[in-house]
Design a protein around this nucleic acid. Structure first.
Length: 292
DNA sequence: AGCATTTGACCGCT
DNA sequence: AGCGGTCAAATGCT
C-alpha cells in the first residue's frame, strides 16, 4: 500500500525532476526545440509541491474524507424554525453547497491569491483548535449575487499551513486572472472536467479537485510572473500576452502528456521517476503536467 | 467619506 | 446546551 508519505515523496521527487529539467533548459535554451516549455515545467513544479503540501497537511480524518465534516451538514434536516424569524435572518444557510460543492486547499501563505476577491465577514474561535477561523464571501456577493464563500484556518504552525475551504459556486463570472490567452481559473468545480491533474488513489475524487484547484490557482501566479518578465520589453499586458502566446505556439508542448523522450537530457528527465518508478506511478490514475 | 475588517450577538443545527 | 455560521454595528484604514 502506498502511504500518503510515499505519495508526497513521489510528488516532490517529480517536482525535483522537473526543476532539473527547467535548469537545463535555462542553461541551454535551444537545446531541444521539441522540449516542453519553461512555463509548463514551472507549472509542473508548482503542481508537485502543491500536491505534496496537500498530502502532508491532511490529517488522517481528512484522508478518509476531506469533506466529511461538511457533507454531514446537508439538506436532510430541514425542520421549520420554532422561533419567529428576524427581519434580517442570521439563519445558517442549509443548502446543497455544504454537501458536495466544497473543497479544500492548503497553502503556506495565508494571503494566498486564488484569483478571486473576497470580503471577510466573520471570525470565530473553533473548539479544540488554537487558531481562529476566518470567514470570507465573494466581494461580488451583492453586486452579482455571488454565493461563493470560503473559510480559512491555520492548521499547522511549523511550517505554517493554512487550509482554505471553499463553498458554493462563483456566479459573478469575474475572475481577476482572466484573459484570453491563459486558462482561466474560473470556478474550479465547474471546470473540473477541463482540469489536468495528478490523482492519488482511486477513491479520492474530492482530493483530486483540491489538487487541481491548487494548480489552476497557481497557474495564475505563474502567469502573472511570466507576464512580469515580458512587461519590461513590451510595455503592456496585451503585448505581453501576444509574446507569450507566440512562445507557447513555438513550443510543441501543446500536448497534455509528459514530454516524450528523445534526446539524452529528456531521457534523463523522463527516466528520473516515470520509468524507474513506474510501478509507483501506476498507482496514480494518471499523471499529467502538461498544458491544456 | 467610503470601504474593509473586527467583534459581539444572534440563530440554526446537532 | 454547545458549537459553528452569519449578521451588522463599531472600528480602523486609506
Amino acid at each position: 500500500m502506498n502511504t500518503s508519505h510515499e505519495k508526497a515523496v513521489q510528488a516532490i521527487l517529480y517536482g525535483h525532476s522537473c526543476a532539473k529539467r527547467l535548469k537545463l533548459q535555462l542553461d541551454h535554451p535551444m537545446a531541444d526545440e521539441r522540449s516542453v516549455s519553461n512555463y509548463d515545467l514551472a507549472k509542473s513544479i508548482v503542481h508537485c509541491f502543491s500536491s505534496a503540501i496537500s498530502i502532508f497537511s491532511d490529517k488522517p480524518k481528512s484522508e478518509d474524507n476531506l469533506f466529511s465534516d461538511l457533507s454531514s451538514r446537508d439538506s436532510s434536516s430541514s425542520s421549520p424554525p420554532l422561533l419567529p424569524q428576524r427581519s434580517h435572518s442570521k439563519k445558517r444557510k442549509n443548502n446543497d453547497t455544504y454537501s458536495s460543492e466544497n473543497w479544500s486547499h492548503d497553502s503556506p501563505d495565508p494571503n494566498y491569491y486564488d484569483g478571486f476577491l473576497w470580503r471577510k465577514y466573520g471570525q470565530k474561535t473553533i473548539k479544540e483548535s488554537k487558531h481562529q477561523r476566518s470567514y470570507y464571501r465573494c466581494s461580488y456577493n451583492i453586486d452579482h449575487a455571488c454565493g461563493a464563500r470560503k473559510h480559512e484556518q491555520k492548521i499547522k504552525d511549523s511550517p505554517p499551513v493554512y487550509r482554505t475551504t471553499y463553498f458554493g459556486h462563483h456566479t459573478c463570472n469575474i475572475n481577476q486572472n482572466q484573459d484570453a490567452d491563459f486558462t482561466t481559473i474560473g470556478d474550479p468545480v465547474d471546470n473540473l472536467e477541463n482540469a489536468r491533474m495528478i490523482r492519488f488513489g482511486q477513491d479520492l475524487n474530492q482530493e483530486t479537485s483540491c489538487l487541481s484547484v491548487s494548480v489552476k490557482h497557481e497557474e495564475g501566479i505563474i502567469k502573472e510572473e511570466t507576464m512580469g518578465q515580458y512587461r519590461g520589453t513590451t510595455g503592456n499586458d496585451k503585448d505581453c500576452q501576444n509574446v507569450i502566446k507566440e512562445n507557447h505556439q513555438s513550443s510543441p508542448s501543446g500536448s497534455s502528456t509528459p514530454p516524450s523522450s528523445s534526446g539524452s537530457e529528456i531521457d534523463m528527465f523522463d527516466s528520473d521517476l516515470l520509468v524507474e518508478d513506474l510501478d509507483l506511478w501506476d498507482r496514480y490514475d494518471l499523471y499529467d503536467f502538461g498544458l491544456r
